[in-house]
Design a protein around this nucleic acid. Structure first.
Length: 189
DNA sequence: GGGGAGATTATCT
DNA sequence: GATAATCTCCCCG
């Protein structure tokens, strides 16, 4: 399989969010298989780019696809997104840890593999991702993406933790993965 | 093992 | 001054 390139992200966030399930994300020497994602775009009241309103925080979303959009939330956590076309983005919600487990456990202060990367805040802490990485290309170190070899069955559900547009089914994942932030009550689609 | 409070700050109105 | 795409701990039973 070819490596994932910039064209991979030059489409809508839902397509990318599904295509990312099963791919491996590396950050430095740590990384894992993406098992959970969510899609956001300018038509979505829950999105930072809703209504195409540009601010200092969301500037990266309006730039070229294939870059990391990292933001700070609840005064505590960082969240990692991949920018797609037209100011849309995919939130990376969970990984199955595969590389650099010891380093991730050290950064997390927890060595349970199921608790290392099973949430957007957790995986940023595990990988060491912070605001200084906002805007980085996904195709240059320390970031790297490795394509999946087979297409997995994708489960769909409503997104998590939202107060706006909480009913949109824009969360995607591996239904039976033990590394999800939460399970998928809905059947795989 | 489930529910709820509290943490803590960048960003925007 | 309000809000936020989260997490952990503590309480309960």
């Amino acid at each position: 399989m070819k490596p994932i390139g910039p064209r991979f992200f030059a489409r809508d966030a839902d397509a990318v969010a599904r295509a990312l399930i099963g791919t491996t994300l590396m950050f430095g020497k740590s990384g894992g298989i993406i098992v959970e994602t969510e899609a956001y775009d300018t038509t979505d009241p829950a999105s930072h780019s809703y209504g195409e309103r540009q601010t200092r925080r969301n500037a990266v979303m309006f730039g070229a696809p294939g870059h990391a959009y990292v933001y700070f939330i609840y005064g505590v956590h960082w969240c990692l997104n991949f920018v797609c076309k037209d100011a849309s983005a995919v939130l990376i919600r969970a990984l199955e840890p595969t590389h650099g487990l010891a380093a991730m456990a050290r950064r997390r202060g927890n060595d349970d593999p199921r608790k290392l990367c099973s949430g957007p805040g957790k995986l940023c802490e595990a990988l060491g991702i912070t605001g200084v990485h906002n805007g980085l290309s996904l195709f240059a170190p320390p970031l790297a993406l490795i394509n999946r070899s087979r297409r997995p069955a994708i489960a769909t559900g409503v997104r998590i933790g939202l107060t706006k547009a909480a009913d949109l089914p824009r969360r995607y994942g591996l239904a039976n993965s033990p590394h999800l932030s939460r399970g998928f009550p809905e059947l795989p689609i």
